[in-house]
């Protein structure tokens, strides 16, 4: 177990290092850089003709920002700062990156957690019920609603909820905090306020995931329910509900544990549009904006952070799998 942990942790560090290089380089792949985009916007949009004067200005700006140096040097400087948790300054906003993303990262994590909890709390019991009572009217109803949930785009759901809230209840859905808590520091009151706002985006973002999870869990469980160990447990008199939870459900959940790590980045990239529609202060819109204006440091910091969170998530889910499934140890 110790060897396993040490090995996995080392691999995690290595993976993070590779991610940082790819993140930094990939963001510079599109033509131009922050300087060219900035000047272009100053003189009136992408179609305005560039002049010699502009180009000189652009070069000056580039030199000022250090963007004229070789990429290796830029990367080395950036990563050296980053490992000391000094993420530098956003080129566009001229403020510390930690300030730009700090609160948003917290919001994103809360939103993701809220969505995951919503998805699991709803999907696991429904999935189990639908497998145990498969081909019953309830199962067919759940399947139908589930497919509907899978098919409806989440931004459409968000728009509909906005409209319903505004038309019928005269409330504005959106955001994650009430105005009075927006700038307040963390307190119990702020947390409760967050929970009050969180459930709507959690439902919007979680619907498709819930429907998918129900389907997968139902099918996994149907496979397991017919296995001899279930019949054997039944033959020794274990009560039915206890039997189903203890044996086949535990087995059917294993594949989900291994995918926990990918949930966070999946939710983030999936939530960009919803976050824009519902004006949620999460990382998604910030990343989108940073990529459009080619704010190199802000964008690569966000991508790197997501990478780190994914690596940590995967590491945790690997460890959980080893804990939950004794068969994995012998394979190590």
């Amino acid at each position: 177990m110790t060897i396993f942990l040490v090995r996995r942790t080392l691999i995690a560090f290595l993976t993070t290092f590779v991610i940082s290089i790819i993140a930094f380089l990939a963001i510079q792949l599109p033509p131009g850089d922050f300087a060219s985009v900035y000047i272009q916007n100053l003189i009136g949009g992408p179609t305005a003709p560039s002049t010699v004067g502009n180009l000189v200005l652009e070069e000056q700006l580039r030199a000022e920002l250090g963007l004229d140096q070789p990429q290796v040097v830029q990367y080395a400087k950036w990563i050296w700062r980053t490992v000391r948790l000094d993420f530098g300054t956003s080129i566009e906003h001229s403020v510390k990156i930690s300030e730009v993303i700090g609160q948003r990262l917290v919001n994103t994590v809360f939103l993701a957690l809220g969505t995951i909890i919503f998805t699991w709390v709803l999907a696991v019991p429904i999935g189990i019920y639908s497998a145990v009572k498969h081909n019953s009217p309830t199962d067919y109803t759940v399947t139908f609603v589930g497919f509907l949930g899978l098919a409806v785009p989440d931004f459409l759901l968000a728009l509909s909820l906005l409209w319903i809230g505004f038309t019928y209840f005269d409330i504005s859905i959106g955001g994650l905090y009430s105005p009075e808590y927006l700038e307040a520091s963390w307190s119990f009151g702020k947390f409760v306020d967050l929970l009050k706002h969180l459930w709507i985006p959690a439902i919007v973002l979680g619907t498709a995931g819930t429907a998918g999870l129900i389907r997968i869990l139902r099918n996994n469980l149907l496979d397991e329910l017919a296995k001899p160990y279930v019949v054997a447990a039944r033959a020794r008199g274990v009560p039915e509900w206890k039997l189903i939870l203890k044996y086949p459900v535990r087995m059917a959940l294993n594949p989900f544990i291994s995918t926990l790590g990918y949930l966070l980045p999946f939710l983030l990239s999936g939530s960009v549009i919803v976050s824009v529609v519902l004006s949620l202060p999460t990382l998604g819109p910030t990343l989108l904006r940073a990529l459009i204006v080619e704010d190199l440091y802000l964008a690569s910091t966000i991508v790197l952070m997501l990478g780190v969170l994914t690596v940590i998530g995967t590491l945790l889910s690997d460890i959980m799998l080893v804990v939950f499934d004794p068969r994995i140890k012998i394979a190590e």
Partner: peptide, 23 residues
């Protein structure tokens, strides 16, 4: 339920798959 495993017990053909692999 009292009868299963109590008065009447069963031994199965496949001892491998008749035990849960994770318990």
């Amino acid at each position: 339920r009292a009868m299963r495993g109590g008065d009447v017990a069963m031994v199965f053909q496949e001892p491998m798959t008749s035990f849960s692999p994770i318990h």
